[in-house]
Amino acid sequence: MITRSQMVAGVTALALAAYVLNMVRRRRLSEEYSVLWLVATVGVTVLAFWSGLLHTITRLFGALYDTSTIFFFGFVFVFVGLLHHSMKLTRLENENRELTRALALERARREEEKS
């Protein structure tokens, strides 16, 4: 018997997966970044329809409620995602700095050659 909350979680996860895949199809999201989101939607779907697994994980973690387990995984997901993007931003910033400097020096070189 599928409960209403399972239906809501399942439909939401499927809608998110469809949205992510569509973003990849339209080249607005790279395959690399889509992995994290698709893994999250699969995780939500599995936990929504396999309540036994959720209860087991909750017991293993020593949590009292299933919702605590879900919030814990949600927090880990957001933390990992943000950390990953901060690292990406740092790399992009360094690459951007290198490019900016190379462009500025090249322009100066050309101006010196002209004058």
Partner: peptide, 10 residues
């Protein structure tokens, strides 16, 4: 004076 001009602030 020669100028090296950054296209963005660094």
């Amino acid at each position: 004076v020669p100028v090296v001009s950054h296209p963005v602030n660094m």
